[in-house]
Design a protein around this nucleic acid. Structure first.
Lengths: 170, 170
DNA sequence: TTGGAAAGTCAACAAGGCTGACATAAAATG
DNA sequence: CATTTTATGTCAGCCTTGTTGACTTTCCAA
């Protein structure tokens, strides 16, 4: 992998990949259009349940890290506690999330999915994984590496930390 | 590039890339966290001007395709005309967008950025391009190819058409 | 014991989606 | 020419999800 002295050109194999403004604009539009596809399937499911993306996000990260506290969730989601609280309240009322008072620190609420919550999470993530799986397969293994590399570079440092935290096996 | 018979394994060079649910979950979170980074810089600029992402999207696509009609924009943005109209109205009132009555079809409004509109568009897209450029450079040219390939596969067919439409030189 | 952190609550507000209904002008069609 | 369809705009009202500000309760820790 060689790097040119030029500010906008990179060498890939034998073909030049120019990072012109137009190339970058295409990357920007790729993100915009792809994010729509990325959320489309879960959105349909959520509407049936009377929920929105905010509920999906909460359910996702509670599932990823069971027992996480409200404060942890706030840091990951990057919203105000009032916003998150509104979402969590409905999820608890609807019996999808359980908020257990902390044992060591009783101010904290540890969040868990109930069986019903796990069921919804499964439906949502399965739909999203299916699309991701098809995209990965069609694009090929090398593309998947590149996809992840670019997205990781696009994150703010704080978000990248959160992202790298959620690793199971490296 | 070889494909294994297995449903979840793909070969990349000599290392196996397993598409386990956990790998897919990481892809999902990568999208979530990266999209935040992707919008963070323009969001800051928009707030200073009292605008939101909806304005950014409109300005972006009017800049991409000057003279585009309201209906075209609706198809690209995937919102209702009421939603878009609210945004366009403020942009026209503020002198960032000009809506010219069509010559051949006088029902149509052809949308153009004014000089002030181009100025804002430049500020927004420059911020976004800078992040994209750094991400691309850090990830490397091969990663950029993969990034685009996966994102394109993630789009709904209709959106992919819109995406591929916006090509200048192939 | 007192300060401050964690969490919850209430109120108010705004952006930006949505639907439904209606108006207007102009093009297209019979 | 009459009718229908299309493109656009607009008003009213609703929802989700974000915001800020103020206030309370709980309770850990200095």
């Amino acid at each position: 992998m060689t790097e040119r002295g030029s500010s906008a050109a990179m060498v890939r194999g034998d073909s030049l990949l120019f990072l012109t403004d137009d190339q970058l604009r295409r990357g920007i539009e790729a993100m915009f259009f792809a994010y729509r596809g990325f959320t489309a399937d879960p959105d349909r499911i959520l509407i049936e349940h009377g929920y929105g993306r905010a509920h999906h996000r909460a359910v996702h990260f509670i599932n990823r890290t069971p027992g996480t506290t409200v404060n942890n969730l706030l840091a990951i989601l990057g919203v105000t506690k009032q916003s998150l609280n509104r979402v969590l309240r409905t999820l608890v009322e609807d019996g999808l999330v359980e908020a257990r008072v902390g044992k060591r620190d009783k101010r904290e609420r540890h969040l868990f999915l109930t069986d019903a919550g796990k069921e919804l999470e499964q439906a949502l993530s399965e739909a999203q994984r299916n699309r991701m799986r098809v995209a990965f397969r069609n694009a090929g293994p090398e593309a998947v590496q590149g996809f992840r590399a670019v997205l990781e570079e696009m994150m703010d440092p704080e978000m990248r930390r959160q992202y790298l935290d959620g690793v199971d096996q490296g």
